[in-house]
Amino acid sequence: MATLIRPPPINHSQSAIENVLELTQLSDIDPDLFTNTRPLWHPPGARGIFGGAAIAQTLSAAQKTVDPEFTVHSMHCYFVLAGNADIPILYHVERVRSGKSFATRTVQARQRGRVIFTTTMSFVRQNSGGTNMVEHVQPMPQDIPAPIEDLDETEGFSHGHSPFQSQRMAIENDDSDQPHTKKCRQWIKARGRISPAGGHEAHLSAIAYMSDSYFVGTVARVHKLWRYSTDRKSNAKSSIDEDELKKLLEMDDEELKRQKNVDDADIERIRRLKNGKDMQKEARPEIGMMVSLDHTIYFHNPRNFRADEWIFTEMQTPWAGDGRGLVYQKMYTKDGTLIASCVQEGLVRLKQNDSKL
């Protein structure tokens, strides 16, 4: 059973992402206890539910326990266990502190009595910074190609259930032999129009959801690592399952270029597979396991953007080692306003030929 209570009909006055992130308050049990109203998405090939759902729903739950004058400015999350899309999630909010200027909340997401995700958030009262303030901002990069309005790379294939659209760009400095200098960029936005009833909270939850879009995957992209298992005997969990690889092998180059999770390096290797090349003999690095470990978001200008309008994101990784990788992300509105800075560390293990992962 994917939900604790039978889901109501889809609310067509709300956007897809509002419906996906809708929570049910279990006030008869505890006013600070919530559960997912609708089933959560399990991306093909992933170990559990889409991590962005846990991030966004814990934020949604916490937002329901603070005064309307308070707005989230940071959240620090840990992915503890893979979420099971077939089991309801219970979100318990703890009201750690409610002060004059700041409020603190922790939220635990549980399945079968076990914590699968935990986060601590801080909220700040609007306009509490005073009249005179220290201010600066890193500007959005110049000469970024505008998004194409009628192009949706997430339609069809494995992304048809996604409540947001995305358009990826070519990797900046992709020919460099220095992975830390490369930048992965994309445009994203929630599908449809977020309803006025959702308020600023719905837009904040939406960018929290979208912020996990192929985040730690940046490490694989800048190293041009192969993410599709070609060894059926391997017990390691590949990033993308075998069924998706079959679909990719049936596509021509133009179709492949439209796929969100496929880079030029992937296309070249898919061509080789089509031509009967043995990927194992080429000894090319292949991802054995890639999962998020933690996720931090700092929100800027939290009431001055719309998540259903194009948002530019830029990701860069300063370090990878010891089976892990770190990625930074900045999110800007189309007119260049910085709305969020994110950090994620993830498990990034290569397939080992001589041992199990």
Rank of each mutant, 00 (worst) to 15 (best):
M1V: 10
I5W: 05
P7E: 07
P9G: 01
N11E: 14
V20K: 14
E22I: 04
S27G: 11
L33R: 03
T35F: 10
N36I: 05
R38A: 06
P43F: 03
G45H: 02
G45L: 02
G48W: 01
G51A: 03
G52Y: 08
I55R: 04
A56V: 04
A62N: 06
Q63N: 13
V72Q: 02
S74V: 02
M75G: 12
V80M: 09
P88S: 04
E94Q: 11
R97G: 05
S98F: 04
S101N: 14
T104W: 05
T106R: 15
Q108E: 14
R114H: 12
T119V: 15
F123I: 01
G130F: 09
N132F: 11
M133R: 15
V134P: 03
P141K: 03
I144R: 04
I144N: 05
I148F: 10
D152T: 08
G156N: 07
F157H: 01
H159L: 09
Q167H: 07
R168M: 01
R168Y: 08
H180G: 05
C184R: 12
R185H: 08
Q186F: 11
G192P: 04
A197C: 11
G198V: 00
G199D: 04
G199S: 03
H203E: 09
I207A: 08
S211A: 12
F215D: 01
G217V: 05
G217K: 07
T218I: 03
A220Q: 11
V222Y: 00
H223Y: 09
K224F: 01
S229H: 03
R232Q: 14
R232C: 05
N235L: 12
K237L: 06
S238Y: 00
S239I: 02
S239H: 08
I240G: 11
K247E: 13
M251K: 11
D253R: 02
K257A: 12
R258S: 14
V262L: 03
D263V: 06
R269P: 02
I270S: 02
R272Y: 10
K277F: 11
K277L: 09
D278K: 00
E282M: 11
R284S: 10
P285D: 06
M290V: 07
L293I: 14
I297Y: 13
N301P: 11
D308I: 10
I311C: 13
T313H: 06
E314T: 08
M315E: 02
P318V: 09
W319R: 14
G323L: 00
V327T: 15
Q329K: 14
K330M: 01
Y332F: 09
T337M: 13
T337V: 14
T337F: 09
V343Y: 08
E345H: 08
L347V: 12
L350F: 13
K351I: 00
Q352H: 15
D354N: 14
S355R: 15
L357Q: 11
